[in-house]
């Protein structure tokens, strides 16, 4: 695919010190065998019509990972990432399975940090949808009449879910896509996103998505200290059906952005040099 190819080319340029076989790994990922723009998503896109009547849940406060932790995989059946490629709830298309298994994750049971193909580790590419919740960093909701702003401590980055709005007919593909939001049942914020590019991973394990990704997040306030997030991946370019992810958040009192998790290639490399290299002698794609 065009954009994935461009991303791969940029990746190669950025790690010129890497061995040739690592370049080949990153530069030649399998791509979806078709033009995904013509595909139809499995699930309805955007807010239901008419919008459900709902009171607005209070999502104020700072939220950090709760029960179940932050995990490795988006798969609800395999959050720890022990069944990479064999998750019972991920309906891979063949190319997507091949793509996933060709990646070297930076963390988790199959971690190969010294050879990782992770675009976030190497070049601080944005984490993207889904994977943003795999990092142990807090989030905060700013609820206004026209939009809900989701602030992430990692990046730091922020997104906008426009309320009482529809997606544009032909959104420009971008890392975070275009999001609309609405409330349901007095306790849930739904965020519906399309219009992403295909450069980010859905999680730490390298699960891919295409520009046809339709990503649904349902933030349900369970009590004053708990939010459950149910995610749905609806991407007919990479999977044969929708599949679920789950995370839980608990209220934090340590202060938002008290420590800013800015992605720094230097920090990533230095961590590897200080801790990883001695434990993983041999091939590395990291700069010296």
């Amino acid at each position: 695919m065009r954009t994935r190819g461009l991303a791969a080319a940029a990746f190669v340029v950025s790690v010129t010190a890497a061995p040739a076989n690592v370049y080949a790994q990153a530069a030649d990922p399998p791509n979806p065998p078709m033009d995904v723009s013509a595909l139809k998503n499995f699930l309805p896109i955007g807010p239901p019509s008419p919008l459900p009547v709902s009171k607005v849940p209070d999502l104020s406060g700072d939220w950090t990972f709760g029960a179940g932790g932050f995990g490795q995989s988006l798969s609800a059946a395999d959050p720890g990432g022990r069944m990479r490629g064999k998750e019972p709830d991920i309906p891979y298309q063949p190319w997507a399975l091949q793509y996933t298994m060709k990646q070297f994750p930076p963390t988790g049971p199959d971690a190969a940090f010294e050879r990782t193909t992770d675009p976030n580790i190497h070049t601080c590419e944005p984490l993207g949808l889904g994977r943003i919740y795999m990092a142990p960093a807090k989030l905060r909701f700013i609820q206004t009449v026209e939009a809900v702003y989701i602030l992430h401590e990692i990046g730091p980055t922020w997104r906008v879910a426009w309320l009482n709005a529809k997606h544009p007919d032909d959104p420009d593909p971008q890392y975070w896509g275009h999001s609309v939001g609405w409330y349901e049942n007095g306790d849930t914020l739904v965020v519906d996103t399309i219009g992403t590019n295909d450069r980010s991973w859905l999680d730490q394990l390298g699960h891919p998505h295409t520009e046809k990704l339709h990503f649904i997040e349902r933030f349900k306030k369970q009590d004053d200290k708990t939010i459950r997030l149910d995610m749905t991946v609806d991407d007919p370019g990479a999977y044969t059906g929708p599949w679920p992810g789950v995370r839980n958040f608990t209220k934090s009192t340590t202060g938002f952005l008290r420590f800013q998790w800015v992605c720094s290639v230097r920090d990533n490399y230095e961590h590897y040099e200080k801790v990883g290299r001695t434990a993983t002698p041999g091939e590395t794609s990291f700069k010296k």
Partner: peptide
């Protein structure tokens, strides 16, 4: 602490 998810401990409400 309540750190990263482990495959043996799926989030509550699933499975």
């Amino acid at each position: 602490g309540p750190g990263p998810a482990d495959a043996a401990q799926p989030p509550a409400g699933r499975q």
